[in-house]
């Protein structure tokens, strides 16, 4: 039996825009963003409890690199890593990048995605559950991660979420084209 994910994957042309191992300073930028968020919303990280020091390996399967995240509030660390570095983490979460982003903004339900095998998890189940519940409650918008407020925040949210919506439609069309006949 062959596993066929029906979730949208990035078109090949977009995938090739990203190098196999991102040289962009994504890690430091995301670290800064997460620490800044912790400064503004400290209660958000309380929900993780003891699992805030866990190392989460996030693997967007349609990109050539992965992330490790230690969501320890103002001591949070995000690193861009090679896919081979999964073994050093407490938890591994894998799925198409647009699906993982949808989890972050609450567009999609994490339980449903896991139970239908669109995303996969391994490692410490309790740490995954704590992260899932924390993200569920956080109701994060792109502007929250960027530290924006007011009209500018609304503008940025509209722009980024709109762009993500278009990207999902494109990826959906792409996935349908690439899926083999059942």
């Amino acid at each position: 039996m062959v596993t066929i994910s029906t979730e949208p994957r990035l078109p090949a042309v977009v995938r090739h825009l990203f190098p196999a191992f991102a040289g962009l300073p994504l890690g430091p930028l995301l670290t800064l963003s997460l620490r800044s968020l912790a400064g503004r919303q400290p209660r958000l990280f309380d929900r993780l409890g003891e699992h805030r020091t866990a190392c989460y390996f996030i693997d967007p399967v349609d990109l050539g690199f992965a992330f490790t995240v230690v969501p320890d509030a103002e001591r949070s660390i995000v690193r861009v890593v090679r896919k081979s570095e999964a073994a050093t983490s407490s938890v591994q979460i894998r799925g198409p990048i647009l699906t993982l982003l949808s989890l972050l903004d609450g567009t999609l339900d994490g339980d449903a995605l896991f139970f239908s095998r669109i995303i996969s998890i391994s490692g410490r189940t309790e740490a995954v559950l704590a992260l899932r519940n924390t993200i569920e409650d956080a109701e994060l918008r792109p502007a929250d991660l960027l530290g924006l407020r007011g009209a500018l925040a609304r503008l940025v949210d509209t722009g980024i979420l709109g762009a993500l919506g278009v990207a999902r439609q494109m990826a959906d069309r792409n996935s349908r084209r690439e899926a083999p006949e059942a």
Binding site: V2, T3, R117
Partner: peptide, 9 residues
């Protein structure tokens, strides 16, 4: 569960 088969808790 078979590969691709929905899983449960």
């Amino acid at each position: 569960y078979e590969p691709g088969e929905p899983v449960g808790y």
